[in-house]
Amino acid sequence: MKNKQLKITQNQAFWPVIIFLTIILFNTVMTRGEFLSISIVDGHFYGRIIDIFRNGGKLMILAAGMTMVLATGGTDISVGSVMAISGAIACSIIRGNLLPGLGGSVTAAILFAVCAGIICGLWNGFLVAQIKIQPIVATMILLVAGRGIAQLITSGKIITINSDAYYFINGGYILGLPFPLYIVLFLVGILLLFVHRTSFGLFLESIGCNSLASKFAGIKVNRYLLAIYTISGAFASVAGLIESAGIKGADCNNAGLNIELDAILAVAIGGTNLMGGRFSIFASVIGALIVQSITTTVLALGVPAAYIRVLKALLIIVICLSQSGKFKVLFGRKLESKKKEAVAL
């Protein structure tokens, strides 16, 4: 029994889940229960909670890909720009501005957008693994150039499209639940299967801890680096599709702006060491939900816009403190000494 208890609390996802539940609880109390209420309109579920899951979809996907990149001690700050490229390509194809021969096919638009994401990822991976550029610099190239490329594709304009099939990516419902949730389940599910059923996870952790020793143990470090940046790029392109379907068009300047920071934050809240090593994709996904719910909370509380950023920062500080090992040790010691006192009494 004791042992089981220990196992649960030692799971990397334990604290993130607790934090998430706390935020939900807090909101529920603050809104006198309204926060939890879910209404059904036309067979679709609506409510704040549902919103968190729907709007958090992009971030969950990005965080899942980012987790592996960070686990190897790298980082990918180009994901926001890749989202912009992906949205630009998809919308341009649907409008027929790009590759008019495809006849505005939504399927083709999605395929090309994802391919673009994969190419971006391969490029990042190539710079990091082969050319050995520091990841933050390597991915900064696309961070900067990516939006430029997106603008070239859309000729510098914000383009809007009219396609119900494309809108479905963000706004659709299946069995009453929003479609982005299914995309998350599908992508994260496959990734989790791959990481845990094969030795991919072990190799990534090994590379993140000590890449030279990993090479000596026979792991093709470069190949795996290439793979994870590619996955991150591909996932970013999917997030880009969701975003552009949400605004029903492509806005190269604002699509995915600063979202890389939220994604990295989500992974950090999930407890993965940003210097590389042990990681948990599931915990990062919960981390993404936390980041999303903070945003929702701040909005729900009706905080004046001027205070939003500061409040968000405060919440982040509290969360990071509660995640910090040193803090836990200090706090744990206090608890223990209190327990001892209690026993002595």
Binding site: L202, E205, C209, N210, A213, A217
Partner: peptide, 9 residues
Amino acid sequence: KTEGIIGDL
């Protein structure tokens, strides 16, 4: 230390 162990595993 540098070529052998994977410290955090």
